[in-house]
Design a protein around this nucleic acid. Structure first.
Length: 275
DNA sequence: CTCCAGGCCCCGA
DNA sequence: TCGGGGCATGGA
């Protein structure tokens, strides 16, 4: 499949910190794992990305995963940013422009939940490593062409293999992961359908709950505040989040732009690579 | 050695 | 409700 869309930048998406299983495999080449599928992508120009899959598989799976049904929210958000007048104006406009092509993926809820539980007080390479470790040890094996890969483990697998999970170097987060697995095995992931529900989980606070809403539930108004975003709020907006009122419904898009932009500026953008 | 990483729990005021 | 200590682990 050839995707012609200059609002889609797989490199920026993979470096934006929203997902941990999209890795760089070569120059302009990326690999993504979603559910029990693997796909390889190549960004051949600013507006063209090749997805190595059939039309049917694209329509059935990857179109939704990469949120490629339309560009409406991204264009609308950009328009809001262009119109913004007020404190931090320059920072907002630069971060949004610099982040063009970032989309909010429609990731698997369960994987998103566990990924961001693991993310707390952790760094991105090690988060990715922990997730790979979970998949490699207790996930289901799949095969794509001649590549072996492992799907993210189910809640049942985590419960059944909880002693293995506790030995994967997750630190104190292993109890949070196992606890969440128990709740989801009992109630189903559909039960975790709101900020309040997800926050009830042991080890989930405001930040992780907001990440779950934004990246797992695709609630684009969620605005996770981590140490980076807090730093931006303090420095560029004098500690006030009043600027969010201009971005009603799209706060999460702005959060991603700021997070990406800030890390890029500080030279701490992380490029995940295979193995 | 210390410091830090997309925080959260728990405790005491 | 707010602030601070403690928390597992590994890399810099």
């Amino acid at each position: 499949m050839i995707i012609q869309n200059d609002w889609f930048d797989i490199r920026k998406i993979s470096e934006s910190g929203q997902c941990f299983r999209i890795v760089k495999t070569g120059e302009n080449r990326y690999r993504a794992i979603h559910l029990d599928k693997l796909i390889e992508l190549e960004r051949v120009s600013d507006d063209t990305t090749i997805l190595d899959c059939s039309y049917d598989e694209y329509e059935q799976l990857w179109k939704d995963y990469f949120d490629l049904r339309d560009n409406y929210v991204y264009q609308e958000f950009k328009r809001l940013a262009d119109e913004y007048v007020g404190i931090g104006e320059d920072y907002i406009k630069k971060s949004v422009e610099n982040s063009r092509g970032i989309r909010i993926l429609r990731q698997d809820r369960w994987e998103t939940l566990i990924s961001f539980i693991i993310s707390q007080r952790n760094n991105i390479p090690r988060i990715a490593k922990s997730i790979e470790s979970l998949a490699d040890n207790i996930g289901k094996c799949g095969k794509h062409n001649n590549i072996n890969f492992f799907a993210f483990p189910t809640c049942t697998s985590i419960i059944e293999n909880r002693y293995i999970v506790s030995d994967l170097g997750l630190g104190y987060r292993d109890n949070y992961v196992i606890s969440a697995a128990n709740v989801v095995a009992q109630c189903g992931i559909d039960y975790i359908n709101s900020f309040d529900r997800v926050k009830q989980l042991y080890g989930v606070g405001d930040k992780v709950a907001n990440c779950y809403c934004l990246f797992g539930l695709h609630q684009l108004d969620a605005f996770p505040i981590d140490v980076w975003v807090q730093k931006i709020i303090d420095r560029e907006f004098k500690g006030s989040t009043e600027f969010l009122n201009h971005f009603k419904g799209y706060e999460g898009l702005l959060q991603q732009c700021m997070f990406y932009h800030e890390r890029k500026l500080s030279g701490k953008l992380v490029t995940l690579t295979a193995n």
